[in-house]
Write a protein that binds this DNA or RNA. Structure first.
Ligand SMILES: [Mn+2]
Ligand SMILES: [Mn+2]
Ligand SMILES: [Zn+2]
Ligand SMILES: [Zn+2]
Lengths: 143, 143
DNA sequence: AATGATTTTGAGAATCAATCTCAATTATTA
DNA sequence: TAATAATTGAGATTGATTCTCAAAATCATT
């Protein structure tokens, strides 16, 4: 389970699983979907888990290195993250109207990309794909 | 040609094609590949085209709205742009070692994405795909 | 060409996410 | 327990970007 992984990861680097780090880990592990550091900070504050912004940012970094979460992208309002533990790889559709994020996965799409890389002599490690457009719900409203 | 398009676009909004805007347009039009506002600002400064940062940022915005350039993505060092006039749509491979950007296009990839959108009742408008990995050159070096 | 209205510019201030500083605190080791 | 090492938080700092606003440039009209 996540805490075990995180603890081991930290230990191997001579770092400690503090109360603050554990709290942030729990928060991100139980998170549904995408999140950003500031919101996470504010939510923890509300819940009387007063952890400084510095620690939030620092811990999110470590969690990335550890592979438990990942940066999704940078926006004008800051960086978006998502947890990766227990989540398969996927890509995103983003509704330009309501902001909804649809997660999807396509084996064909993955294979096609790897084929393309081969063609260019490029050694694939990972990728990010975001499709922008309008979701079903918004299409109904606007007609 | 670009200047004509830009001029018309501005005129239609009651805006003017000033010396500053024209200079930035020329610079971006003649640009090869990707660029960022700060570098563009510094280069123009070197060439005795002293244009303020404010104007650079403002003009890049307008050029985006006009469709002559596009934001590629946001990085920790700022926003990356590229010109779009005369360039077909394409996606990117980014070398994690040397930073090289390979531009590529795949009809199959495009079709596949549109099919996926259909499946989700999502109305496609555009997308961005970045494949991260290692380029041919770097692979040779590192073995 | 002069007048008056409109738009644009640039210098520097403001904003905002993210990082850094460093003294005080906490955990680990001897 | 004392010495050592890691961590925290408050606030300062950085860096990209935006904003402010007075001065300059451009346009339309007489
Ligand atoms: Mn996701
Ligand atoms: Mn490109
Ligand atoms: Zn929507
Ligand atoms: Zn390379």
């Amino acid at each position: 389970m996540e805490e075990k992984i995180f603890k081991k990861f930290l230990k191997d680097r001579g770092q400690r699983l503090t109360r603050e780090r554990a709290a942030i880990l729990r928060k991100t592990s139980s998170s549904q979907g995408h999140f950003d550091p500031e919101s996470l900070y504010l939510e923890m504050k509300k819940k009387s888990l007063k952890i400084s912004r510095a620690s939030v940012y620092r811990t999110l970094h470590i969690l990335c290195e550890c592979g438990l979460i990942e940066k999704v992208k940078k926006t004008e309002h800051g960086t978006i993250y998502e947890k990766t533990y227990g989540q398969g790889h996927h890509d995103h559709m983003l509704c330009l109207s309501c902001g909804e994020v649809i997660e999807f996965y396509s084996e064909d799409l993955e294979r096609l990309q790897k084929d393309l890389c081969k063609k260019y002599g490029f050694q694939w490690t990972n990728h990010t794909l975001e499709i922008q457009g309008y979701c079903k719900k918004c299409l109904k409203k606007t007609g």
